[in-house]
Computed example of a mutant assay.
Amino acid sequence: MEGAKTQVSVIGLGAMGREIARNLLAADYDVTVWNRSPEPVNELIEEGATAAQSPEQAFS
């Protein structure tokens, strides 16, 4: 599938996970994120990520 974005998920959006997700978004990956607290998830949604409702959903 030429032109399709590679999908990745990031679970745990502490200092390191949040920056990894941002770098993946900047590199044009399709990023799904999950975190116990909603604040980092909401930040990354605004930057183009998709939220998962659970860790299991992030990887399905």
Rank of each mutant, 00 (worst) to 15 (best):
M1D: 11
M1I: 06
M1F: 10
E2K: 15
G3P: 01
G3E: 01
A4F: 05
A4W: 03
K5A: 11
K5V: 09
T6Q: 08
T6P: 00
Q7P: 07
Q7L: 13
V8S: 03
V8P: 00
S9V: 01
S9L: 03
S9F: 00
S9H: 03
V10G: 00
V10S: 03
V10P: 00
V10E: 02
V10Q: 01
G12K: 04
G12R: 03
G12Y: 05
L13Q: 06
L13A: 05
L13R: 06
G14H: 07
G14Y: 09
A15V: 11
A15Q: 14
M16S: 11
G17W: 02
G17Q: 02
G17H: 07
R18I: 10
E19S: 15
I20P: 02
I20D: 06
R22T: 10
R22P: 05
N23E: 05
N23Q: 09
N23W: 06
L24A: 05
L25S: 09
L25H: 09
L25F: 11
A26G: 08
A26P: 03
A27G: 11
D28K: 10
D28P: 02
D28G: 03
D28M: 02
Y29W: 04
D30L: 12
D30K: 06
V31T: 07
V31C: 03
V31W: 01
T32V: 09
T32Y: 05
T32W: 04
V33S: 00
V33N: 02
W34V: 06
W34S: 01
W34Y: 14
N35A: 00
N35Y: 04
R36F: 02
R36N: 09
S37I: 00
S37C: 01
S37Q: 07
P38E: 10
E39W: 03
E39L: 10
P40Y: 01
P40H: 07
P40A: 03
P40R: 08
V41H: 05
N42P: 04
E43K: 15
L44Q: 02
L44G: 04
L44Y: 11
L44N: 01
I45L: 12
E46H: 12
E46F: 12
E46D: 15
E47V: 06
E47N: 10
E47M: 13
E47T: 07
G48Q: 06
A49P: 03
A49R: 05
A49E: 08
T50C: 06
T50A: 12
T50D: 12
A51Q: 09
A51N: 07
A51C: 01
A51F: 05
A52L: 04
A52F: 01
A52W: 01
A52K: 04
A52S: 12
Q53D: 12
Q53T: 15
Q53M: 13
S54A: 14
S54M: 13
S54Y: 14
S54R: 13
S54H: 14
P55I: 07
P55M: 14
P55V: 11
E56G: 15
E56M: 14
E56C: 09
Q57A: 15
F59N: 11
S60R: 15
